[in-house]
C-alpha cells in the first residue's frame, strides 16, 4: 500500500516538474523571443521598416502616377465624347434635312381638297402647292411630306393631266401635307390676310389644318445620283475663301 502511494506521489511530482520546466522555458521564450537578441530583433525590424518605407514610397509614386494618368485620360475621354456628340448633332441635322430618315415631332397636318361646287384641276394649280410649301418653309418647318412623299432637295412637283407627280408618284386630291415645326409660325405664315390659304380657298380649295403634338413624316425612298454637280474639295474651298 505504502509503495503504491510512493509511486503515485512520484508520478505527480514528475508531472508537476515537467509542467514547471515547460512553463519556465516558454516564459523565457515569450519574453526574449527566439534565439535572437534584442539588438538583432531591433535591427531586423529596422531593416523591414526601411524596406517597407521604400516600397510604400514607390507605391505612392505609382499611385500618384496612375491618378494623374487617369485624370489626363478622363479629360481626354470627356473631350472626345464632347467632340463625338458635336459631330453626332451635326450628322443628325444633316440626316433630318436630307429627308432620307423617318422623323417625328410636333407640327401640322394640312388637308387640301376641292370644294364640291368648284372645278379644280390639281395639275393647273400645282403652283399653289409649291407656294404653300414655300410658305411652310418661310415658317421654318424642318420636314414636309405630301401624301407620304417626303419633300427633299430634289423633289419636283410635276403637273400631269389632272394630277401631280411628286417624287415620280402620282397624287390626286385630297392631299395631306404634313410639316414639322412651330405651330404659331406656321399659322402666321399660312393664314395671314391674302395669304396662301386664303388664295387657295378663293379658287375653290377646301383647306383644313390640324396641329398635333406629334406627327411622323416618312423618309424618301430612293437614290439621287449626282452626274453634273461636283463638290469642291475643302482644300479648294479654303483657297477660294482666301
Amino acid at each position: 500500500m505504502n509503495k503504491i502511494w510512493n509511486k503515485a506521489l512520484l508520478f505527480i511530482i514528475s508531472i508537476a516538474l515537467g509542467i514547471i520546466f515547460m512553463t519556465q522555458y516558454n516564459t523565457v521564450q515569450n519574453v526574449l523571443g527566439t534565439d535572437k537578441t534584442i539588438n538583432e530583433k531591433t535591427s531586423d525590424l529596422n531593416d523591414e521598416m526601411t524596406k517597407l518605407n521604400i516600397e510604400k514610397n514607390q507605391l505612392r509614386d505609382e499611385l500618384d502616377r496612375l491618378k494623374a494618368e487617369a485624370e489626363v485620360n478622363d479629360a481626354l475621354l470627356k473631350e472626345r465624347e464632347e467632340e463625338i456628340q458635336r459631330i453626332e448633332e451635326e450628322l443628325n441635322k444633316q440626316k433630318i434635312l436630307s429627308g432620307h430618315y423617318d422623323v417625328k415631332g410636333k407640327g401640322v397636318v394640312i388637308t387640301i381638297d376641292a370644294d364640291p361646287n368648284a372645278y379644280i384641276n390639281l395639275a393647273y394649280s400645282h403652283q399653289y402647292i409649291l407656294a404653300l410649301i414655300s410658305y411652310l418653309n418661310n415658317a421654318g418647318v424642318e420636314a414636309i411630306s405630301i401624301n407620304g412623299q417626303r419633300y427633299t432637295n430634289y423633289t419636283e412637283i410635276v403637273p400631269v393631266l389632272d394630277h401631280i407627280n411628286v417624287n415620280g408618284v402620282a397624287l390626286v386630291l385630297p392631299l395631306e401635307i404634313k410639316a414639322i415645326g412651330n405651330e404659331r409660325t406656321i399659322e402666321a405664315s399660312l393664314n395671314f390676310v391674302g395669304g396662301i390659304v386664303s388664295q387657295m380657298t378663293q379658287i375653290g380649295f377646301v383647306i383644313e389644318t390640324e396641329y398635333k403634338d406629334e406627327i411622323q413624316i416618312n423618309k424618301f425612298v430612293g437614290d439621287k445620283e449626282f452626274i453634273y454637280a461636283t463638290p469642291i474639295e475643302p482644300i479648294e474651298d479654303e483657297l477660294l475663301e482666301q
Binding site: 472626345r80 463625338i84 450628322l91 444633316q94 436630307s98 439621287k224 461636283t230 463638290p231 477660294l240
Partner: peptide, 29 residues
Amino acid sequence: EYFDTIIEMNKNIQELKHYNGFTDVRGPG
C-alpha cells in the same frame, strides 16, 4: 477606334452636306 469613328461620321456628314446643298459645287448648267 476613335479616329475611325470620327472619320466615318465626317464622311457621312460630307456626303449629306453635298446632298443638302451645304457644299460648293461646280459643273455645267
